[in-house]
Amino acid sequence: MSNGYHIVVCAGIVPDPLQTLEPVMSGSTPALKNEMLLPAVLDPWAAHALYEAANLAAHAEGSKVWLVSAAPKSKLQQVMMNVAQKAAFELVPIDAPANGFADAHSVAEILAQAIHSISGLDRSRLLLFGGWESASRGAGVTMQLIGEQLEITDQFQGVDRFTVLPDGSLEIHERIEGGRHLVSICSGPPTVLGWATGNLPEPRNNPQVGMANMRTIMPALQKTKSTSLTQNVRYLSVMPPRQQRQTRIVKDRSAEEIAAELLEWISQE
């Protein structure tokens, strides 16, 4: 494709995975204890999508990457100090109280509106990237809903590989059961791709890239207005995933025996 792609990456922010996550009720909706105080990172699933987008843009001349993110503005700014160094993009911030408990429909709606309002975005070249899942309580439907609102019908979830074929069509590998992939050929944009982990490592920080990005990121953050989210979901109860660690020190056991025991243990779950 001679003019490249317009790649829009949808990405939220989540508390740093090393933090202790403790659900509490905040009014009628749940929240994480001290979430605003904890360091945040770009949602790791969406971050993979960003790295793939940057890589694609670097290899398809004329491409451009936008990062659309709904999050509390000040937290987003802190996250950008790290993320902005990893890839060149233009930030489209939405100052909204989005978190793991937000209504996915509401989040999808404001993200779709923001994408609609991107000046110069060519829908015929649009690749809508995002995370297939989320490190917060992901509903797993946000990307699908955004695609629907933008009337993009070619949608792929759990994407691990994306290749542009010589004729401009797109070969997409979606993750399925058993460590295998479903390979599809799509004629071209517009397309929604919900990424799994992809194949790229996390890029190193490059402050030069960060400085260049910040020239547009800071004004965008300053201009963004606060948006509220409608909450149509009612939570009866929330809890962190069950985690159990049982450590034993066992010597002189073969790999086969260990594998068998692990298999038995997994089967109990």
Partner: peptide, 14 residues
């Protein structure tokens, strides 16, 4: 000073 904030993050990553 976002230039310094970027620098903090890149130094921290190393």
């Amino acid at each position: 000073r976002y230039d310094l904030q970027l620098l903090v993050q890149s130094s921290r990553a190393v």
